[in-house]
Design a protein around this nucleic acid. Structure first.
Lengths: 212, 212, 212, 212
DNA sequence: AATGAATGAGAGTTCATTCAT
DNA sequence: AATGAATGAACTCTCATTCAT
């Protein structure tokens, strides 16, 4: 393959990460070998290890990266308007966009790899990922609180359980809509987007103030 | 180890399958080797291949098996009462029980391994699994229809999208509650069961007739 | 290569061990790959791992094996006579024979791999090796004590330092005579055996009672 | 890291060599990577190859260097006095000092890497190393001859075999005392220095004239 | 002279699978 | 039916080395 052209260093890191994400999505993390990533990205296997200490770090980087993007998406979703329903729709839209750009994290969050507290030797990336997660939760908590204060959302919903269960349910919704896209289209007769949209609206009804 | 006692053939198949499921639960499919299964089940590695053509078939068998169990659970959930809300609660309870007994299928259904229509070379087990899935959907459709007819459920909900989105969201809920059990307990301050229960009730509100 | 003929199981273990020893001698432990051993022994790489858990265990097995042989040699050397000088000569001869049969241990004992107390997580093989080493030292201590009591050996030699220094010096002698065989022949003009014999006699003079 | 300050070229070569030796001592040759050497020495990996053709040459350089140091040590040991026993003690002390400074060569001389005549494609460094070895042997031969002529050493010892066997035995002694330092302290109950000293005195008795 | 970047080759190890018995 | 024995292929990761700059 010969030597590669000189490009700013981080370009390669990003190339590798992007390729890895693509493959991880298709075949899972365990199902994707470093060789495959290398080949698809157009580098030698050894080069991957120049840019990432090991596979774990590569995964960690992807999760962090996607978490950062998600945070930005959520921020934007809340910034553009103060109207509760619009904000909710924006967040849902953000999640869909995010899933299209970084389908990887959802996969991860719900699969074996836990960014959880059962082990204690965290990579720096993992810690940072966790911190951003907290920031996101904070923003969402504010959003819900303001919705309640406005009278747009039911006053009797417990905030933290709501956040966490919504997060779980939306993840389930998005992931399924991705994995079973064809099935949905064929069996239910609606395109993925509409399916998602229906799910999100259903969920909103569950927390909207009764006047709706 | 010597030769084993003569037992009806299917007993061994079941022994192996049960052991495999246990291990798959603990360490994932990719993380479990045929060797481990053989050892834990008390057979030789080669014997596994007498009862299952390969690992894939073993997985397929487990999925089918869990699907059958789920069908039974759902049937029972609907049989015991005709009251809509009670039936709903029963189904939720059935899902939780099922997740505890066969955590395996949820993992599978939402993870990399798709029992989807993108490929076409299905194992017989996969086809059968799909057929049972259809039967389950049918029962649930009946349940919703009856709920609507009773006036317990909103008249304006489209049945198929509701089934499928509920299925997705509940899966997300259950899976997350399983994976992040510690996190939920620590950060939200409620036990897993309560978290699940809260999620299920929230969802019900979204389809219950307004009088609720 | 196809499947191999059936032979009693331990034969393969021994085949592999023997081949490994040969290669370790020629190129050192680190310098010898499992692939090489497999190829030379006529097995597939994976088969090595059927018979030995890993490279470390293979090395441990070789060391233990050679230690056991050494013990037998020493025992025999002391058994055949009670005359001190004859016993000494027998031990030396045993060492030479041993070095020819199991050149591996000397290499090891004096090289990086210490069967020492700096680490604490010993393999079972290592512990057993150590135990046999102790038994050898015991026999040699008896031999020296009897030599002193007979008046054949100097009364003023401290036993333990003598054992250990003799052991070290003889190892140095034997190893060098092996590694620099050609050099010795060419530059000193005597065959290896004579060189060794001269070294051993020189050492004996150092502990023999003055009457000699 | 940027470009380095301009320094006379050989300084870098020496820096690298010194660092390499330190690491080789700690972790063995095979256990030390060029990367490690580069990092510890504060150069880029590629720079090592500016100063040494490859790892082999770096090793060869170190051996040569240590050989030169040994020659100087031996010269000094013989220069300060003409008394045979004092000279012997000086040489022993020189060897110990040398082992402390350059533990590397002993390791090498008795281990896998032979600077022997079995192969024929010598590096220039190897040839030079050999030449210095010869010079050392010459000095030692003179020393022994003078000892015999003085009547301090036995008249019946063949000089070349004595030199070579002493060399081997002392190497064995020093190496063992280094590798098994803890063992000696714990099991024999004397510090390393005393152990060495005892070994050297024992050896001297073997060649000293009987009057002793 | 010095280095960042890249890599071929190969290390030890594991795994699903096969086959003779 | 059951298995001991064997293996090809793959895995993650490391290393000495090279080359353009």
């Amino acid at each position: 393959m010969g030597r590669r052209k000189k490009e700013p260093g981080s370009v390669h890191r990003q190339n590798i990460a992007d390729t890895a994400q693509e493959l991880f999505m298709q075949k899972g993390i365990e199902g994707t070998s470093m060789s495959e990533i290398a080949k698809k990205a157009g580098y030698s296997k050894a080069t991957l290890y120049v840019y990432f200490k090991n596979k774990e770090e590569l995964v960690g980087f992807l999760v962090l990266e996607s978490m950062e993007k998600l945070y930005t998406h959520i921020l934007n979703a809340l910034k553009t308007t103060r109207h509760t329903k619009e904000r909710y729709d924006n967040i849902c839209q953000a999640l869909v966009t995010y899933q299209q750009e970084y389908p990887f994290y959802f996969q991860l969050a719900l699969s074996e790899i836990n960014i959880d507290f059962t082990h204690t030797d965290f990579l720096p990336e993992e810690l940072e990922t966790f911190r951003i997660g907290e920031k996101i939760n904070d923003k969402v908590r504010q959003f819900i609180q303001e919705g309640i204060d406005n009278g747009d959302l039911r006053a009797d919903i417990p905030i933290m359980p709501t956040i966490f269960s919504f997060w779980s349910m939306m993840s389930g919704l998005i992931l399924t809509s991705e994995h079973k896209r064809t099935y949905i289209q064929q069996e239910i007769g609606i395109p993925q987007e509409e399916f998602l949209s229906y799910g999100f609206q259903t969920l909103y009804r569950a927390i909207a103030a009764k006047t709706l």
